[in-house]
């Protein structure tokens, strides 16, 4: 770990030396935005919006917009706290080397203060404008991602992203809670879909980037149990995920279009997972992993976008004999 620490200190020192004294912030606006993990934020906004739309209730559009903003900022805050905590390992992984803290553009203390301020502000704001159940769920999500996942699970167990995946699965519930003041089976199913989707998604990336994680000392499944076991686990999780993806239609809050989209995209997801399982060596194996990683994002997007489209565009046609 001395190597990691040295690299971080060297990078930070280089950043400071090339610019101003350490007491002056070196960060540009885009560095602070990068601390919020905008891509993760966009996924959180999307899934929280889905939770709001499938909720059995109504919300004033202004309050709804403000609630989504609060959830997005809360998610960004947890990403910021994650980057603050993980700056040492970010400094040794090629994918994260240029993040603002390891690159020396933002001091760790600045990121910590920024993350805590946004966390507290977003939770209080959501509580005041929507309700305290939604705010409580947002606070728990931030705590789960920043403390339970980042500080505890990530460096301790190869099941880190399995358990930690819950943090990314809460937003639909927060969205529903903001509208109705409660959570239902509908968003519990959306929670389960994201929760089961997370391991195959990240393990596909971990198979390709296992060298990075090994250098950083993060016990990802490919480094601990080997690539073959990881491929088996990816396939098993996908076998659970695909039928689970159909559940919204079976329960009744997804319509006929959703059922068709979930079935077709789920079938392709399974094909991608089977290719990862079968192709174990060389460029074909790497290509299969990237294909699964990329399509898993499309798959989740399709499921949630279809749920939104069915409600917003009036395309909801109940599946005969299924659901409510």
């Amino acid at each position: 770990m001395a190597g990691i620490s040295d690299t971080l200190q060297t990078n930070a020192a280089a950043g400071r030396a090339s610019r101003a004294p350490a007491t002056v912030s070196n960060g540009e606006v885009r560095d602070f935005l990068a601390l919020l993990k905008p891509r993760v934020m966009s996924l959180v906004v999307f899934t929280a919006l889905t939770g709001m739309i499938v909720a059995h209730g109504t919300i004033h559009p202004v309050i709804g917009f403000a609630a989504i903003l609060a959830i997005a900022v809360g998610a960004g805050a947890s990403g910021c706290l994650n980057m603050w905590w993980d700056a040492d390992i970010d400094a040794v992984m090629s994918r994260t080397l240029d993040r603002p803290i390891p690159a020396g553009r933002i001091a760790p203390q600045e990121a910590l203060a920024f993350g805590i301020t946004l966390s507290v502000g977003s939770v209080l704001f959501l509580g005041l404008i929507a309700n305290w159940l939604a705010a409580g769920l947002l606070a728990f999500t931030i705590f789960y991602y920043a403390v339970i996942y980042s500080m505890w699970l990530k460096r301790w167990t190869p099941q880190n992203i399995v358990i930690g995946g819950a943090a990314g699965a809460f937003p639909p519930m927060i969205g529903e809670a903001a509208v109705t003041g409660s959570v239902s089976l509908d968003t519990a199913i959306l929670f389960a879909i994201i929760f089961i989707w997370t391991p195959p998604h990240f393990w596909a990336l971990a198979l390709v980037k296992s060298g990075d994680y090994a250098r950083a000392g993060v016990p990802m499944l490919p480094n601990v149990s080997g690539p073959d076991e990881t491929r088996r686990q990816i396939l098993l999780y996908t076998l659970v995920l695909v039928p689970l993806g159909l559940a919204p239609a079976l329960v009744g809050f997804g319509g006929a279009i959703y059922l068709a989209v979930a079935a077709l995209s789920g079938a392709w997801m399974l094909v991608c997972a089977l290719r990862v399982w079968r192709r174990r060596e060389g460029p074909a194996a790497t290509k299969a992993c990237w294909a699964l990683f990329g399509f898993s994002i499309v798959y989740l997007f399709l499921l949630f976008a279809t749920l939104i489209a069915e409600r917003v565009l009036g395309l909801f046609f109940a599946v005969p004999g299924l659901g409510a």
Partner: peptide, 13 residues
């Protein structure tokens, strides 16, 4: 103790 680049970044912030 600020350079021109520091001042520009501070202004942006």
């Amino acid at each position: 103790g600020l350079t021109a680049a520091d001042r520009r970044r501070r202004r942006q912030r």
